[in-house]
């Protein structure tokens, strides 16, 4: 299958390993990945901060760039959520009904990574090997906005060597929320503290999730604590194999906090 990668601006700029892992994983499964280079950002930050008018040009760009592709994948629940639940709204708000329906078409073909793997490609065992104790944080937008359900867990359970431990109060928000973490930094920090306490209680080596943004937040906090727990994007775990793990790439694979 020919799959267009919607890399997301955050993964492109700060977490390229998550994006590269997505490419490697899908190629390993026998698919062709293409990267439409005119993509930039879905505009979620603009919408969520109260600038839907500014986001309009980014929505238009996104819809235009991804219109030619049958299947689009992003390693982010949050950005897929934005495409699915915000793009048409932004267009309608601006009175652009044509753009709204274009955006809806693109949204209908856009999948978060675990959705693509389980629902579209029909795999749960992606042939990964990752010998670590891992806990999974279901990010709010994966969980409640696009409802990936237990798909990430089903994928993780098939990873050889991986010791999956349940995260207490997993469904509680980590406190990121984009501009929330800036505008309400104190409350965000209090929420993060509880999330980290729960992560540490699992005694996992690795905390994973389907969103680089939340991982950046949690990882940033854990790094400050020098807690010794790494945050690693779900795509990187699923892309890992015996080769990458033994070829000394282990460090390179981690989204280092």
């Amino acid at each position: 299958m020919r799959i267009a990668l919607f890399v997301t601006c955050l993964a492109d700029t700060l977490f390229p390993e998550a994006a590269k892992a997505t490419v490697r994983l899908l190629e390993r499964l026998g698919h062709q990945v293409v990267f439409p280079e005119d993509q930039t950002c879905c505009g979620q930050m603009h919408v969520n901060t109260g600038y839907p008018d500014e986001a309009l040009r980014l929505v238009r760009r996104h819809a235009r760039v991804f219109a030619p592709y049958d299947v689009v994948v992003a390693p982010s629940g949050s950005c897929v959520g934005s495409v699915r639940h915000q793009h048409a709204m932004v267009a309608r708000r601006a009175g652009d009904e044509r753009l709204a329906s274009r955006a809806e078409e693109v949204a209908g073909r856009t999948y978060e990574l675990s959705e693509l793997l389980v629902d579209v490609l029909g795999v749960t065992d992606v042939g990964a090997y990752y010998p670590h104790r891992v806990t999974y944080h279901p990010t709010c937008h994966s969980l409640r906005m696009i409802r990936v359900g237990d798909k990430p867990l089903r994928l993780l359970r098939e990873v050889r060597g991986l010791d999956l431990v349940e995260l207490p109060q997993a469904e509680q928000c980590c406190g990121f929320g984009g501009t929330f973490a800036v505008k309400n930094a104190d409350t965000s920090t209090a929420m993060l503290a509880d999330k980290m306490r729960n992560v540490l209680a699992t005694r996992a080596d690795v905390c994973t999730a389907g969103d680089a943004s939340c991982l950046m937040h949690i990882g940033g906090g854990l790094s400050r604590l020098r807690a010794g727990v790494r945050t690693v994007h779900l795509a990187e775990i699923l892309a890992a194999t015996e080769n990458t793990e033994t070829a000394g790439e282990r460090d390179r694979l981690g989204v280092r906090p």
């Binding site: 492109d12 390229p16 590269k20 930094a185 790094s223 400050r224």
Partner: peptide, 15 residues
């Protein structure tokens, strides 16, 4: 944000 969190190290290259 950075009062209580560290920013990730910048990657050597973008995706």
């Amino acid at each position: 944000w950075t009062a209580s969190r560290d920013l990730p190290a910048a990657p050597p290259q973008t995706f």
